[in-house]
Design a protein around this nucleic acid. Structure first.
Lengths: 228, 228
DNA sequence: TAAAAAAGTTAGCCATGACTAACAAATTAA
DNA sequence: TTAATTTGTTAGTCATGGCTAACTTTTTTA
């Protein structure tokens, strides 16, 4: 029985599409993800997506019916999780050993996650003593692709008086990450919701003797664990 | 004055060609390097090389006249040296921190050297405390692209009775590197040339109480510093 | 020095993965 | 329930970077 699990011959593009689709499926859920959403997410034309999806279907990484929603096969999911493992391990390495800041890691990790070498990533993992979370608070899958999904809710879902702890932030936007650190928020910060303003859904929060007002959009990207 | 030195927009292929040409020019010398040699070295067809050379000429990285020999511009050399810096720093990291062996590093470093991030490589350099040599004994260029070329001669150029020290090995072939470590040679090993056999130019050498006979081809890839 | 060999070049083809424009199906709203 | 809008698909184009086959120039050698 030839073990093909290790001979990952995907192109960078194919990998990008699989990872994007995985992220859109929110790592499992059965929300309908269509061709245009994937195109938007990857900032390519729907025609490009359509084309690549066709290719990934023949390779058995993606399933979908004509005009139907997209889904990943187990094999497709497995590849995506391995990419996420690589991405998060590299981010951790960049932050903890190479003086990168929160907002600088993403772009470089996007490149590093495509390096093909199982030994490299497993040794990097060992070198850092098997970290559980990346610098943004997200769980890092282990070498077998197993990982627990962090139970998280967005700051925007809380109500007046709630107290929570920051467990993760969305790492998609550099500007957002800069903003987060500029106002002084960090992982594990305890945040108290002072008031959710009905008018524009902006939220007045308190943390470390600081009081700030943040927008709904901001709060959508901040993941917390409720304390009270 | 907009500083374009940092915005290195070359493709992986373009980088590969520039580095290959640099290596063939033995890092400076004016030996004639032609289209076919470059094609051989890169294991592509002469037509492909011809095509790429044309492109690199319009971008001012390469100079040559029709049917003439190839050469790099200063800009072309600078890019090649930066690639070599990255390659050697990554090899050093893989060997010294991630338990890679001599013969395993090259392939992965070939991928890593194309990662585009000045901060990444400079921080990696700092993290390892600015190493001078890579695991094969080659000098690592500094952040400004400066480096001294190791004064080295091949083991095959010595004569009976000479004593030398191993300073570097050619890192081009995995099989060769495995062979070197299997017989017990390592950087700094002191080697005594017992006899150069006229018949086939094979060399009988002694090191660490071991006596081995190596071929001319082997000795061509071993770089040494003469001691006696 | 003329013919053979080697080296370099050109033309034309292929796959990948983008794109636009045009069209078809499905969904939503009037 | 039909019309409008959104979503998905197809056809055809482009750039990159490979390839082969044929041709030209240069170099070698007989």
């Amino acid at each position: 029985m030839t073990n093909k699990l290790n001979s990952n011959n995907l192109t960078k593009s194919e990998e990008d599409y699989l990872k994007a689709l995985f992220q859109l499926l929110i790592e499992d859920s059965s929300v309908k993800v269509g061709n245009n959403q994937l195109a938007d997410y990857l900032k390519v034309s729907p025609a490009s997506t359509n084309n690549m999806i066709k290719k990934l279907k023949t390779k058995n990484y993606v399933v979908s019916e004509k005009y139907g929603k997209l889904d990943l096969t187990e094999e497709g999911k497995s590849i995506a999780v391995r990419l996420i493992r690589k991405h998060r391990l590299w981010e951790t390495f960049l932050c903890n050993y190479l003086n990168f800041t929160w907002d600088e890691v993403h772009e470089v990790a996007e490149q590093l996650e495509h390096i093909k070498s199982k030994k490299l990533i497993d040794e990097l993992d060992r070198f850092m003593d098997f970290p559980e979370k990346d610098p943004h608070g997200e769980m890092i899958p282990n070498a077998d692709g197993e990982y627990s999904v962090l139970p998280k809710i967005t700051l925007s879902s809380l109500s007046d008086g709630d107290i929570c702890q920051l467990v993760a932030v969305d790492d998609g936007s550099v500007n957002f990450l800069k903003y987060v650190s500029e106002i002084g928020l960090a992982l594990s910060s305890e945040i108290k919701v002072l008031e959710v303003r009905e008018f524009d859904k902006s939220i007045r929060i308190q943390f470390d003797n600081t009081i700030e007002t943040v927008t709904r959009k901001f709060a959508d990207n901040v993941f917390v664990k409720k304390v009270v």
